[in-house]
Design a protein around this nucleic acid. Sequence first.
DNA 1: ATGTATGCAAACCATTTGCAATGAC
DNA 2: GTCATTGCAAATGGTTTGCATACAT
Lengths: 169, 169
Amino acid sequence: MDKSKLQEQVKAEFTGYLTMHKHRKTPERFAILEHIYQISGHFDMDTLFNSMKNSNFRVSRATLYNTIELLLDSGLVVKHQFGANVSQYERAYGNENHDHFICLNCREVKEYKNSNLFTPAQQKRFQRFQVSYYSLYIYGICNKCQRAKKAELKKNKNLDNNNLRTKKK
Amino acid sequence: MDKSKLQEQVKAEFTGYLTMHKHRKTPERFAILEHIYQISGHFDMDTLFNSMKNSNFRVSRATLYNTIELLLDSGLVVKHQFGANVSQYERAYGNENHDHFICLNCREVKEYKNSNLFTPAQQKRFQRFQVSYYSLYIYGICNKCQRAKKAELKKNKNLDNNNLRTKKK
DNA sequence: ATGTATGCAAACCATTTGCAATGAC
DNA sequence: GTCATTGCAAATGGTTTGCATACAT
């Protein structure tokens, strides 16, 4: 199965990282890694914490935060902050870079893969900077909210016109 | 002078926005806008708060947060979250979109203008999404830290070799 | 054996919220 | 005169920290 192969690979990658940096190979760390690689999309710390609590392997929040730091540093996880209060995370290995559309109105985040906005060829241009990954956040108004806003503005304009005539409601 | 013209323009822009959305035109709001447009680079809320306190116009933190929300919505200010705890802001009008390089090691943020990674032509491809602005964050290791890391790894490797021979320090 | 990593609870701190007073309309 | 906006102080909540215990090396 593909999935278990991915698990193997990231575990090997993480092991190498831990060895290289002289960090201990604790069961917690590998359990967290494995859990994260079972999640397909974005997740936040609270979700991860509860997900692990409900499984057979409970870890503390402190350990979760400690470990995610290592995973970020090793490049196995990326962090996103879309403007809301909570940080979002996402696995990075076997999950090609993709772009994010964030609606400024309803805060919904949509992904868009393979947009080719930032190709390897383009990355080469920044030679003195060793690129690990990138985040392209495209902010704007989604289709749904565009319609809602138009309706609101129209309503306000009508109110203006009414006020000119009737003054006090 | 160019600067006062910019101030005029953004003030007009903001006035239009406030009128459109039936929000009041308070002196606080315009003072905050003016202050922000005197800052050239990134700033956070604490910096802005202190900067205003030291000037002749003191506003509360609550008002600062309220107003920045309007400025974000009107597109006059953009918000960045580079992975640190505090949000960074930046004026958007007359300050063309530029990309950010964030060093994963030392957290330094460098700007890169006119990289043309996301041209208007490319934006057209996302027709159902009305693009306001975008943020391209490129994470990696800066030149300075690349050298430091190499040195560290070399040191660790040497320690390993020593341990094989001498065991206890 | 040694010292790093974990878990818990408390601390931190940027941001948000409730509410009385102010002032834009 | 009304009601949105301000300022203050308290509350919130995600993240960090301190410290005793556990366990990887």
